[in-house]
Simulated scan of single mutants.
Amino acid sequence: MEERLGIAGSGAIACGLAATAAQHGEVLLWARSERSADRARGMVSKWCGKLSEEPIADRVTIVSTLEELAGATFLVEAVAEDHATKAGVLSELGRHSNGTAVLATTTSSLSVAELARETGKADRFVGLHVFNPVPKMDLIELAYAPEAVDEVRARARDLCGALGKTAVEVPDIAGFVVNRLLFPYLFSAVDLLEETGMDPAAIDRCMQLGAGHPMGPLALLDYVGLDVSKAIGEAIGTKVPARVEALVAAGDLGKKTGRGFIDWTK
């Protein structure tokens, strides 16, 4: 891998991306707190152990300030799916990055052009939408601000290839392609659940066995995170079901909290 990846974030996407990249080179990962850093070490180590028999987790260096990512040639923001949160991190990354570094966001639904402007370097910016779990998912959607130069587009495609991923360039529209098509379907499963009173597992089983889906829609919402799913739905203009709103309000966000449509503690 020709790029040295610097990742701002310590959640599932950030850690999955770090573990994937560690198969091919050195990685820097920023965590906001020591608690986040400890959790990130565990997630990175777990994924790296699944991906290689070699101690590739040692290639991931966790840092505590965004300034420490300045040595990276490809800087990726991977924090919460909220414009203000992402904008704050991207603005700081823009200040610390050198003149040749590429800046990127892993947003799944927000405007790439608007986030690009927060960096002050829109010509060197790319939307790098990876999918969770990153080590297993082949696709990366690439979206650009109008100012993006050809060199940045080429480096983004080359990075995807080096990570063993398939890059598809998509328009900078809310939800890009996958989420724009996927979430209306996922939310329709919630509506069906409410209309029929079916067991969530039964709906999921129907779509797995009848439609060949690897995961049912309700389990997938839980896996994505119901808070993230709500944010995506709002961004793409799809009505968020009341059941999703209620679960988020209760703090039942899916797999990451142990409970959502499914009880993940069992």
Results as ranks from 00 to 15, higher is better:
Ala18Phe: 00
Ile7Pro: 11
Gly99Tyr: 07
Ala78Arg: 09
Glu147Leu: 13
Gly9Val: 13
Gly175Thr: 07
Glu92Ile: 03
Ala18Glu: 01
Val112Tyr: 01
Ile262Phe: 14
Lys256Leu: 01
Ala250Met: 02
Glu151Val: 15
Leu128Asn: 04
Leu220Thr: 14
Glu118Arg: 10
Glu151Gln: 10
Pro241Ala: 02
Leu209Gln: 13
Ile7Tyr: 05
Val27Trp: 05
Ile56Gln: 00
Arg124Pro: 03
Ala167Val: 04
Glu2Cys: 09
Val149Asp: 15
Ala72Asn: 02
Ala122Glu: 11
Val102Arg: 03
Lys165Gly: 01
Ala246Asn: 04
Lys230Leu: 15
Val244Pro: 00
Phe176Glu: 03
Ala167Arg: 06
Arg4Ser: 12
Leu181Gln: 03
Leu69His: 08
Asp158Asn: 08
Gly11Gln: 11
Trp264Met: 02
Val248Asn: 03
Asp38Ala: 13
Trp30Ala: 14
Gly120Thr: 11
Gly237Gln: 07
Gly161Asp: 06
Gly216Pro: 08
Ala78His: 11
Glu26Lys: 13
Thr105Trp: 01
Val134Cys: 00
Arg4Ile: 10
Ile236Cys: 01
Leu115Val: 08
Ser109Ala: 15
Val27Arg: 06
Phe183Ser: 11
Leu182Asn: 05
Leu115Gln: 02
Asn98Gly: 14
Ala231Ser: 14
Gly237Asn: 07
Ile236Ser: 02
Asp82Glu: 11
Arg153Asn: 11
Leu253Cys: 06
Pro217Arg: 09
Ile13Val: 12
Ile140Gly: 01
Gly127Cys: 09
Ala201Val: 12
Gly88Leu: 09
Trp30His: 15
Ser109Asp: 11
Glu68Asp: 10
Thr61Met: 08
Leu93Tyr: 12
Tyr223Leu: 15
Glu151Arg: 14
Glu54Arg: 13
Val168Glu: 14
Val248Tyr: 01
Phe183Glu: 10
Glu81Asp: 10
Pro184Glu: 07
Ile62Asp: 03
Ala167Glu: 06
Asp158Thr: 09
Leu182Phe: 04
Ala72Ile: 06
Ala148His: 02
Gly164Phe: 04
Asp123Arg: 09
Asn179Glu: 05
Ala250Ser: 10
Ser33Phe: 05
Glu169Gly: 03
Gly260Cys: 09
Pro184Asp: 03
His96Thr: 14
Glu194Val: 14
Ala250Glu: 13
Leu103Gly: 07
Thr61Gln: 14
Leu51Ser: 05
Ala231His: 04
His96Tyr: 10
Met43Val: 15
Ala201Ser: 15
Ala162Pro: 01
Ile236Met: 02
Asp158Phe: 01
Leu28His: 00
Glu54Thr: 12
Phe74Ser: 04
Gly251Met: 07
Ala162Tyr: 02
Gly42Asn: 08
Val168Met: 13
Glu77Pro: 04
